[in-house]
Simulated assay, not measured.
Amino acid sequence: MNSKLNILVRVDLDHARAQVIAKGHITVHSVQALYVVVKRANSLKQGLDLELDISNAWVDDEALEQLQACSRTHHLPAKIDPQQKPCNVSVLAPRVPAVTGPALIAA
Score class of each variant (00 low, 15 high):
Met1Thr: 03
Met1Val: 09
Asn2Met: 10
Ser3His: 13
Ser3Val: 10
Lys4Tyr: 01
Leu5Cys: 07
Ile7His: 08
Leu8Ala: 05
Val9Tyr: 15
Arg10Leu: 07
Arg10Asp: 08
Asp12Met: 04
Asp12His: 02
Asp12Val: 02
Leu13Arg: 14
Leu13Cys: 14
Leu13Tyr: 15
Leu13Phe: 15
Asp14Ala: 15
Asp14Ile: 07
Asp14His: 03
His15Asp: 09
His15Leu: 12
Ala16Leu: 08
Ala16Phe: 02
Ala16Glu: 09
Ala16Ser: 08
Ala18Asp: 05
Gln19Gly: 02
Gln19Met: 09
Val20Tyr: 03
Ile21Asn: 05
Ile21Val: 11
Ile21Tyr: 09
Ile21Thr: 06
Ala22Arg: 02
Ala22Asn: 04
Ala22Val: 09
Ala22Cys: 13
Lys23Pro: 03
Lys23Cys: 12
Gly24Met: 02
Thr27Ala: 01
Val28Ala: 10
Val28Asn: 02
His29Val: 14
Ser30Met: 03
Val31Trp: 02
Val31Asn: 05
Ala33Val: 00
Ala33His: 01
Leu34Glu: 10
Leu34Asp: 11
Tyr35Met: 06
Tyr35Asn: 09
Val36Gln: 05
Val36Ile: 09
Val36Leu: 08
Val36Trp: 07
Val37Gln: 04
Lys39Val: 03
Lys39Asn: 04
Arg40Gln: 11
Arg40His: 07
Ser43Asn: 13
Lys45Phe: 15
Lys45Pro: 02
Gln46Asp: 14
Asp49Asn: 10
Asp49His: 05
Asp49Val: 01
Leu52Gly: 05
Leu52Ser: 07
Asp53Gly: 10
Asp53His: 12
Ile54Val: 11
Ile54Phe: 12
Ile54Gln: 10
Ile54Trp: 07
Asn56Val: 05
Asn56Pro: 06
Asn56Trp: 03
Trp58Lys: 14
Val59Leu: 10
Asp60Met: 12
Glu62Trp: 12
Ala63Trp: 03
Leu64Glu: 04
Leu64His: 13
Glu65Ser: 15
Leu67Tyr: 07
Leu67His: 06
Cys70Thr: 01
Arg72Ser: 13
Arg72Met: 06
Thr73Gln: 04
His74Lys: 10
His74Asn: 12
His74Arg: 11
His74Val: 01
His75Leu: 06
His75Val: 01
Leu76Tyr: 02
Leu76Ala: 05
Leu76Ser: 01
Pro77Val: 03
Pro77Thr: 06
Pro77Tyr: 09
Ala78His: 08
Lys79Phe: 13
Lys79Ser: 00
Ile80Met: 07
Ile80Trp: 03
Asp81Met: 14
Asp81Gly: 12
Pro82Lys: 14
Gln84Arg: 07
Lys85Gly: 15
Pro86Gly: 08
Pro86His: 05
Cys87Met: 03
Asn88Phe: 01
Val89Ile: 04
Ser90Gly: 10
Ala93Asn: 15
Ala93Ser: 14
Ala93Thr: 11
Ala93Asp: 13
Pro94Ser: 15
Arg95Lys: 15
Val96Glu: 13
Val96Phe: 12
Val96Pro: 00
Pro97Phe: 15
Pro97Val: 08
Ala98His: 06
Ala98Tyr: 09
Val99Ser: 13
Gly101Ile: 10
Pro102Asp: 14
Pro102Trp: 08
Pro102Thr: 10
Pro102Cys: 14
Ala103Ile: 00
Leu104Gly: 11
Leu104Trp: 00
Ala106Asn: 08
Ala106Asp: 11
Ala106Pro: 00
Ala106Ile: 09
Ala106Gly: 01
